[in-house]
Design a protein around this nucleic acid. Structure first.
Lengths: 160, 160
DNA sequence: TCGTTTCTGACTATCTTTGACCAATAACAT
DNA sequence: ATGTTATTGGTCAAAGATAGTCAGAAACGA
């Protein structure tokens, strides 16, 4: 298993169930995993972004720390936020993939639905000769349309 | 026996019995067969296509891998037909909606999934300043990508 | 021979890990 | 209070580790 994956699981285990936040010492964690401290930042930057549903806070100096907070909100709240604020008029594939992953995680949509959505906004789906900016705009529209359709379905939680 | 054939059998042996997917390291496999790594890609491209009933996933970088997933034949054939023949390089919204309706009817996808797909290929989702012909091409690509994602979900093992 | 299939290697793209240098904060000395 | 030093965490670019692509060479079959 990849080091990054191990660190990711480790942190997510700490965040399981009730715990909605953890506080860590970067150097300690790095030492525990026998890696460079900056590796921790890499993991946070690639797997604990706001789009993934996490907020990171930290402090330097003596007694410094890194706090990871898991954001909790209802499916409808999340959908409204994505549609009205987050997505805007353009979005990259990477960002879209993260947002969709988060929806699956929070069981707002099923894994299958998430995969369909990912496919719809993949670079492969948009592989036509138009500028990248246009693709990002198309992706944003597509995402918002799909999310709106989901919001209309008025579900409490995704079905298994 | 040809190298490609050997590699093909080797992989299919791993996939025989109950296993519905295998994960490989491209370089290791190439070393094992004493060939160029790209040979592996050739085998996958020519013998493990969706038509053949397989879907490939992979990741680069440290700890990278190639995963080969065997999908259900029944649904796979219909999807492969849609992907490779029915939907050409362009499709109108009306036609797409009709196809999606059929898939829902035949319970290949759920009603919710169908609505998400419709949203993704709706004229609203494609409301950007590009020629209509381009929109039909985009819709075709989007449909094919989504259908491929659905085929991928149809693993031999049980699913929801 | 000629067209197709197989195979390779050079080049490219992507993901991970590290290390050197930077920035902020706390603790301490004056 | 103020300046200095110790203690953290942050950034970024480079190196390492994989996989993908594609054009052309090689092998094969009709």
């Amino acid at each position: 298993m990849r080091l990054s994956d191990s660190i990711e699981s480790f942190i997510k285990t700490l965040l399981s169930q009730e715990e909605t936040e953890v506080e860590l010492k970067r150097n300690e964690l790095a030492e525990y995993f026998g890696c460079a401290p900056s590796q921790i930042n890499y993991v946070l930057a690639t797997r604990f972004t706001l789009d993934d549903g996490y907020v990171i806070e930290s402090r330097r100096g003596g007694g410094g720390y890194i706090r990871i907070v898991r954001v909790v909100e209802s499916g409808q709240q999340r959908l409204a936020y994505l549609i009205n604020e987050r997505i805007g008029s353009a979005i990259s594939e990477e960002e879209a993939v993260r947002l969709i992953g988060q929806l699956v995680q929070q069981q707002v949509v099923t894994l299958e639905e998430g995969e369909i959505m990912r496919a719809a906004v993949s670079s492969q789906a948009l592989a036509v000769p138009v500028p990248d900016a246009m693709k990002d705009a198309l992706r944003a529209r597509s995402m918002k349309c799909m999310l709106t359709a989901i919001a209309r379905q008025n579900r409490s939680a995704a079905k298994g």
